[in-house]
Amino acid sequence: MTRLLELESVSKVYGELRALDGISLAVPRGEWLSVVGPSGSGKTTLMNIVGAMDRASSGSVLLDGVELSDLGAKELAQIRRNTVGLIFQKFHLIGHLTAVENVMVAQYYHSMPDEAEAMAALGRVGLEQRAGHLPSQLSGGEQQRVCIARALINYPALILADEPTGNLDAANEEIVLDIFRSLHADGATLIVVTHDPAVAAEGQREIALEHGRMVREVFHDHG
């Protein structure tokens, strides 16, 4: 299986603090990787670097064949819109846009907005009937599903989810995990950062970070 992501001795230093300390990691296409670790372990820093939102202080990050360390702000923005789909713990929907418009924003930056396609994406997460609602009119679970629809609308090579179930109740957590399972079954590559061992166990592989270093790697057999 070809590698979608390769990190080689990646470090990120903020003054005296080494947020990431020589991380090397390879993620094959189609893998579901879970990243766990306590607060301050470097999970978010790793997500930022992999998601082309930040640059490593040293080391190499190769995403979909492109070396991110060499790119400028504009090229990184291009990687974000074309290659990465982001799912956030706090959903981060734009408050004055409806659910469908929030999905269309991602289309707008990627290539061109298409309302029918955005509606279909909402339909896939079971929210077609709520497409015209503002985020404030949606439950937490519904907002997260809009966030997922937005992340998937451009068929990104890599889906990065940061604590995707952190703000959800058990029922909505299960709905979101169902969607992830379907995505994975379709061949999507997922990297999911989580505190929840149950969610981490859904991945094929689980890595644990501590003080910016990878301290553990576990493979889950889902039969």
Partner: peptide
């Protein structure tokens, strides 16, 4: 389930990694 909805509604896409969204058939002006 929502996942079934998701599977049912998914457009045909190649297995494996995401290919990126395509917008064929639309002229630049459109």
């Amino acid at each position: 389930t929502v996942a079934e909805d998701f599977d049912a509604g998914a457009p045909e896409r190649p297995a494996g990694p995401g290919p990126g969204r395509r917008v064929p058939g639309l002229a630049g002006a459109a």
